[in-house]
Amino acid sequence: MPKDRPVDPRGPRFSAWMTTVILAIVLLTGWWRLLAAQTVLFAMCAFISLKLNPWGHVYRYAIQPRLTPTTEREEAAPLRFAQGVGFIFALIGTLGYATGLTTLGMVATGFALVAALLNAALGLCLGCEMYLVLRRYAPALARPQ
């Protein structure tokens, strides 16, 4: 698995806002194909590289040049772990909506939205802080990469 370099922490915050908006649209419209696309995006970032995140590119080319530069850097491992947690909820949500289990789809999407919003608004990574709990109750999911 390739290792990503540390990133400007404002990039992931921007990306989390975009994810929050996408998940809110999914909840409002039940448009499961959009959720499926978000699921694929989560998977690419978690399992391949954060560089594949299109919001990261939007941030770098359109937003970062307008901001004051920062030397602060955030490690990539927590970010990728968070994308992995997002992937699981988004996958369950997509399967729920697509198979007619709409309530399951909504609940799973709702959880993903809660995590994305906390990340966007407060810079809080719920999955990362709760890693030990995840590891205890779902060892296979939380195995370190």
Partner: peptide, 16 residues
């Protein structure tokens, strides 16, 4: 869907 969204926002606020 609107209620689900409002619920998620409320939960996020409470956890935050």
């Amino acid at each position: 869907g609107v209620w689900a969204l409002l619920g998620a926002l409320a939960v996020a606020g409470a956890i935050g």
